[in-house]
């Protein structure tokens, strides 16, 4: 029954994938708004780094071993694209990251995939390609340090970091 068992596993995997995609909105806190709080909280000057991080959200999260954007991710990146079009002198670097539950070399490439997906989306939003550089950090720079999925899920991310053009 080997084949069938393998098959079941794939099916289970896909179910998880679907369930995650479907439920993430309800069960997970909205982490996409950046580390400094949700939208509307900040008093940051429009067009500043703080404005971007606080009111737009500087990061998006990925499912395990995935580089496909989640619906939340596309929302955040749509907002990022809008903001970057408004402040057209700003340049950014997209950082790709992976969680710690992978091997080093693979995670470098996986995090590059995430950075690329993010960068491509922003370009698709109309942000000039030469304003967006990208870098892959693999699993070398986690932000959440517990040994549980709640942390790993925060570490599987791409972060849009402003590198110039703000006051």
């Amino acid at each position: 029954m080997m084949t069938r068992m393998v098959g079941m596993k794939y099916a289970a995997l896909c179910c998880c994938f679907l369930a995650l995609a479907a439920c993430s909105k309800k069960t997970q806190p909205n982490l996409d708004a950046g580390i400094n709080g949700g939208p509307g909280v900040g008093q940051a000057a429009p067009g500043s780094k703080a404005d971007f991080t606080t009111n737009v959200g500087d990061r998006v999260f990925f499912l395990q071993d995935q580089s496909t954007l989640t619906p939340e991710g596309t929302d955040t990146l749509t907002k990022q694209g809008g903001w970057l079009k408004k402040y057209a002198q700003v340049t950014v670097q997209v950082e790709g990251h992976a969680d710690e539950r992978g091997t080093r070399e693979y995670n470098i490439a996986l995090s590059a995939r995430r950075a690329t997906t993010t960068r491509n989306f922003l370009i698709g939003q109309g942000v000039a390609a030469n304003r967006i550089s990208s870098i892959a950090y693999g699993k070398e720079r986690p932000v959440a340090l517990c040994d549980a999925e709640q942390c790993y899920s925060q570490n599987r991310r791409s972060v849009t970091v402003i590198t110039g053009g703000t006051n």
């Binding site: 496909t68 954007l69 995939r113 997906t117 989306f121």
Partner: peptide
């Protein structure tokens, strides 16, 4: 996903 120019890249992926 919204239909954008980057769709090609995403669909390729």
């Amino acid at each position: 996903l919204p239909a954008h120019a980057d769709d090609v890249a995403i669909r390729m992926d």
